[in-house]
C-alpha cells in the first residue's frame, strides 16, 4: 500500500512568530518544524502501511528555502521518501495554488491513499486537502478520526459535532485527518540516523509545469487586505468565596450549558 502524506513545515509555534509588514504573511525565513497537526497524518499512514504488511509512506511538502527540517522529523518517524516543492517564485502562493502544486507532485506517485491534516497550525485555511481532491478529481473525506482499508475501499469514521459518521469511500481518495486522533510516535535515534539517507526530491514550479505567472503573488487569487490582532482576552468573573461560592459557580456553569 502506498500512502502519500502532505505535510507542512511551519515556524516553531514555541517561538513568537512575526508578520511581514508588507505582505502581511507569516515570516518563514527561520528554521521550520513539522506542523504537529500533520504528525497525526504521518502516524496514521504509517499504521495503515504496517497493517497492510507492505508498502510505503511518501511525504509531499512545499516550503521556502529548501527547508527540510520538518521533513526530516517525518522521515525519522518512518516515512520512506519525500518530495519537496521549493522555489523562490512560490512566495505568496495562496491555498488553491498550493493545492495545485501539491496535487501535481502527488499525481505521479500512484498512491492508494492521500492523507493530509485537516488544517495547518499557522495558516488555518482548512481547504487544501479538499482542493487537492478537486484538482485530482478524487473523492474527499474530511475530519477522519480513523481509517480502515477494506480491499479497494476505505472505511472512515468522520468526526462530527455530535459524534462521528461511518463513511465508505473507494480508493484512491484524499482524506484529511483530525488532530489528536492517534498518538504520533517519537522519532527514534535510529530513525533520525536513517532519515539522513532517505531520498528527498526537490522540485521547482517549472519542474511541475507551472510558470511564474501561475504561482506566488502573481498567481494568487486571494489577497490579504488587513491583519488585526486577536482581541485581548477579557478578565473573567471573580467569585469571592463567602462559603456559598459553589452555588454561584454551579449557576454560572448551568447558564453556560456546561452542566
Amino acid at each position: 500500500m502506498k500512502v502519500v502524506v502532505c505535510v507542512k513545515q511551519i515556524p516553531d509555534p514555541a517561538d513568537p512568530g512575526a508578520l511581514d509588514p508588507e505582505t502581511r504573511t507569516l515570516k518563514r525565513d527561520v528554521k521550520l518544524i513539522l506542523d504537529e497537526s500533520d504528525s497525526y497524518g504521518v502516524e496514521m499512514a504509517l499504521q495503515l502501511v504496517d497493517a497492510a504488511g507492505e508498502g510505503e509512506v511518501i511525504l509531499v511538502s512545499m516550503a521556502p528555502n529548501g527547508e527540510r527540517s520538518g521533513l526530516a522529523t517525518a522521515l525519522a518517524m518512518g516515512a520512506a521518501s519525500a518530495i519537496l516543492i521549493s522555489d523562490p517564485e512560490l512566495v505568496g502562493s495562496d491555498a488553491l495554488t498550493t493545492a495545485k502544486l501539491l496535487a501535481t507532485a502527488v499525481k505521479d506517485q500512484g498512491a492508494d491513499l492521500i492523507i493530509a491534516g485537516s488544517e495547518s497550525s499557522d495558516g488555518y485555511t482548512g481547504v487544501v486537502p479538499e482542493q487537492i481532491a478537486g484538482v485530482l478529481d478524487l473523492p474527499s473525506v474530511t475530519a477522519a478520526k480513523s481509517i480502515e482499508v477494506d480491499g479497494s475501499s476505505i472505511k472512515v469514521q468522520r468526526q462530527t459535532d455530535g459524534g462521528y459518521d461511518d463513511v465508505t469511500c473507494p480508493l484512491p481518495a484524499v482524506v484529511s485527518v483530525t488532530a489528536g486522533v492517534v498518538e504520533p510516535r517519537y522519532p527514534s535515534f535510529k530513525g533520525i540516523m536513517a532519515a539522513k539517507n532517505k531520498p528527498v526530491e526537490e522540485k521547482s514550479a517549472a519542474d511541475l509545469g507551472f510558470d511564474a505567472s501561475q504561482v506566488g503573488w502573481a498567481g494568487a487569487g486571494q489577497e490579504i487586505i488587513e491583519v488585526t490582532d486577536a482581541p485581548k482576552r477579557q478578565a473573567g468573573e471573580v467569585i469571592e468565596d463567602d462559603g456559598e461560592a459553589f452555588t454561584k459557580i454551579v449557576a454560572y456553569l448551568e447558564n453556560m450549558k456546561v452542566i
Partner: peptide, 14 residues
C-alpha cells in the same frame, strides 16, 4: 551537529 539537535528535540518532547 544536526543529529544532536534532532535527538535533543525528541528527548525534550519525550
Amino acid at each position: 551537529n544536526d543529529d544532536h539537535e534532532s535527538y535533543r528535540q525528541v528527548v525534550r518532547q519525550f
